[in-house]
Write a protein that binds this DNA or RNA. Structure first.
Lengths: 192, 192
DNA sequence: CTCACAGTGTTAGTAACTCACACCATACAC
DNA sequence: GTGTATGGTGTGAGTTACTAACACTGTGAG
C-alpha cells in the first residue's frame, strides 16, 4: 500500500521536501539520489520505492483526477475547448493563491533543467489523458477529434506556464492561461 | 566537425542502422549501447560522440528546418494554423511515399518504449519551435499567441501519429493528419 | 504473545554516461 | 618524400541512476 496516509506518506513527503530543498540550493544535476535520501533520513532504496526515477520527485503531481472531474462536470453540449477552459480557470486560482511560490519554483526548476524539461512531455500526456476522459462519456473511447482537442488544450496550458517562467513570474499565471486559451480559440480564423 | 559528410557521417549512419536493427529485433531496453557500437564496428565512446544519449539515436530527426522554411514560404496574411497545415501536408506525402515503413516502425518503437515515449515531448518542442520561427518574421520574437498556436499544431501532428500507430498503420497517415487539423480548426465552435 | 505485513536497510550488481589521454588517418605544407 | 595539424577514434577508470535478492523491524490484529 503506497497510499496517502501512514508512515509511507510521511517519508514520501520528507523525500520530496529534501529533494526540493537540495535542488533549489544546488541545482538538479549536482544532487545525487543518495543525498536526497540521507536528507530525509532514509536509504537510497527507500527513495526508489517511492519514486521510480529521480525525475519523478519533481514531475509527478496530483492534479489530473481533479481536472478530469471538473471537465466532466460541465455540460456535454458545450464546445470541448470551453469545457476544458472552464475546468482549468476554476481550479487554478485556488491552487495559485495558496502555493504560487512553490508552483513557480517548481515550474522554473523543470524548465531550466534539461533532464526535467525533456520529460515534461510525459506530464503533459497525462494531463491530456485526463482532459480526454473528462470530455468522453464513461465507458466510451475518446474520439480522435477529442484527443486532438485535449492535446491542444494541454499545449496551451504548457505554453502559458512557459511564458510565465520566461517572464520570471511577474505576470499572473491565470491571466496568461486565459490569453493562451483565447489564442487557441481564435487560431482558426484570426490574423497572425 | 560533426557535419553531414566524410568519415564522421558514415559511422554515424552505421551506428543508427545498427541501433535500429537491434532495437527492432530485441527491443530498446534489451540492447546496450556497447552492442550497438560493436554492431557498427566502433567503441561505445564513439557512440556517445555522435549521440548524446541512447535515446537520441531514435528521437533525433532532421525535418525541422524544412518545416520552418515551408511555413515561412506561405503568405503571412493567411491564418497561422493554415500556414502550418499547408507546410505539413506539402512535406509529408513525399516523405511518406519514400519511407512509409521506416516512419511507421520508428513511430511504433517510440510509442511503445516508455523511455522513448517519455522523451517525445522534446522532439515535439523542437518541431514547435520550428513552426514558431516559420510563423514569425526573421529578427522578431514569436508572439505569445503564435507560440500557443505552434504548440497546438504540434499537438495535432503528434496525435495523428499516435492514432496511426494505434491503428497499426492501416490508415494513411496524411489522411489522419488532415483530420487532426480539421479537429483543431473546428475546436472552438463545433459540437463535442 | 504471535503472526502478518508494509516499510526499510544492506549488499551486490548492471548499464548509461563522463573524463583524461593516447593513438591513428587523412590532408595539406614544404 | 617528411612534417604537422586536425578530426575521429580507442582505452580504461570512474560516477551515478537504477535493479534484484534477502534479511530485518515496527506496528497492529487476533
Amino acid at each position: 500500500m503506497d497510499g496517502r496516509s501512514g508512515r509511507g506518506a510521511r517519508t514520501r513527503d520528507a523525500l520530496r521536501r529534501s529533494a526540493f530543498r537540495l535542488f533549489l540550493a544546488e541545482g538538479y544535476e549536482k544532487v545525487t539520489v543518495a543525498r536526497i535520501a540521507a536528507g530525509a533520513g532514509v536509504s537510497h532504496m527507500t527513495f526508489f520505492r517511492h519514486f521510480p526515477t529521480k525525475e519523478d520527485v519533481v514531475l509527478r503531481d496530483e492534479y489530473d483526477p481533479m481536472l478530469e472531474e471538473l471537465v466532466r462536470s460541465r455540460p456535454a453540449d458545450h464546445p470541448p475547448v470551453e469545457r476544458v477552459r472552464h475546468a482549468v480557470t476554476t481550479a487554478l486560482p485556488a491552487v495559485y493563491r495558496e502555493e504560487r511560490d512553490a508552483l513557480y519554483l517548481r515550474a522554473r526548476l523543470i524548465l531550466r533543467t534539461p533532464a526535467l524539461r525533456a520529460r515534461m512531455g510525459e506530464s503533459a500526456a497525462s494531463s491530456s489523458l485526463a482532459f480526454e476522459r473528462g470530455l468522453t462519456p464513461p465507458g466510451e473511447d475518446p474520439a480522435p477529434a477529442v484527443r486532438v482537442i485535449a492535446a491542444a488544450c494541454t499545449a496551451a496550458l504548457t505554453t502559458a506556464i512557459t511564458l510565465w517562467v520566461e517572464d520570471e513570474g511577474r505576470a499572473e499565471l491565470p491571466d496568461l492561461v486565459e490569453d493562451a486559451f483565447d489564442a487557441l480559440v481564435n487560431a482558426a480564423g484570426g490574423p497572425s
